[in-house]
Amino acid sequence: MKKLTVLLALSLGSLSAFAQNNDTNGPTGLRSSTDYGTGTSDSRNTGFGIKGGFNLADVYGDDKKNFGNGGNYKSFHAGVYGQYGFNNRLSIQPEILYSRQGFEGNSTKTTTTGTSSTQVTVSERRLDYLQVPVLLVFNILDNVSIHAGPQVSLLTKVMEDGKERKIADENNAHGYSYSSFDYGVSAGAEARVGPARVGARYTAGFADVIKDQNLTATGNKALSDIRNSVFQVYLGIGFTQ
């Protein structure tokens, strides 16, 4: 994680320097957001585009310690965005993303019937979400911006150790169901070179991933106090209006 963060910071810095150099000395026609008049919505920050990249997902919360051999889940996200510039510095950016998340960590349910016991163990969970972040974007430099805002997500699919299972079904063999709805906050930074964008973002979910857990069987540990945690790196192409 530290190496990835350092690499991203260096990339953002390099792209920012390259972009500023191009805006000053580059080819004619590469417009800067400050080429537009202040106090107007006519800005390079207005437009739409596509984006996608890498997810490094995990969970946080008090019950994370009850999952053995925990680890990050590496996957991807992709989607579209629209952006409306209030001026050459401030804009709002809603997005629609498909994000494949999840986490690794062993959990075991023990069920005792008479003198016999049955154990069901899960070690990897994949969670597919349809996400809608709405971000406030501020250009700290002409080609470098920071963004933050709320996000809502709908869980569309769950895979446990490669097998699909129902989202809301606490009567399954594992004794719990999943929350179909998540909400949280996102924050990050982005650099632009012409129509290209590169950025990073962290999203923290506030809703419990697991709910309706049955703890009546002997040996079961609480697993419901965990929430989504995702670090994203992405590339995008924007089309300004």
Rank of each mutant, 00 (worst) to 15 (best):
P94T: 05
E95K: 07
E95A: 01
E95G: 04
E95L: 04
I96G: 08
I96T: 07
L97M: 09
L97R: 05
L97Y: 04
L97F: 01
L97C: 03
Y98D: 02
Y98V: 00
Y98C: 06
Y98R: 03
S99Q: 01
R100Q: 14
R100C: 08
R100N: 13
R100S: 14
Q101D: 01
Q101L: 06
Q101V: 04
Q101H: 01
G102H: 06
F103D: 00
F103Y: 10
E104C: 04
G105N: 06
G105D: 03
G105R: 03
N106G: 09
N106I: 08
N106H: 10
S107E: 10
T108M: 07
K109G: 00
K109Y: 12
K109R: 15
K109C: 01
K109I: 12
T110G: 02
T110W: 09
T113A: 13
T113C: 05
T113R: 06
G114S: 02
G114T: 02
T115K: 10
T115L: 12
S117A: 15
S117H: 05
Q119I: 03
V120R: 12
V120W: 06
V120K: 13
V120M: 10
T121V: 11
T121A: 06
V122G: 11
E124F: 07
E124D: 15
E124Y: 06
E124Q: 13
R125N: 09
R125L: 05
R125G: 01
R125T: 12
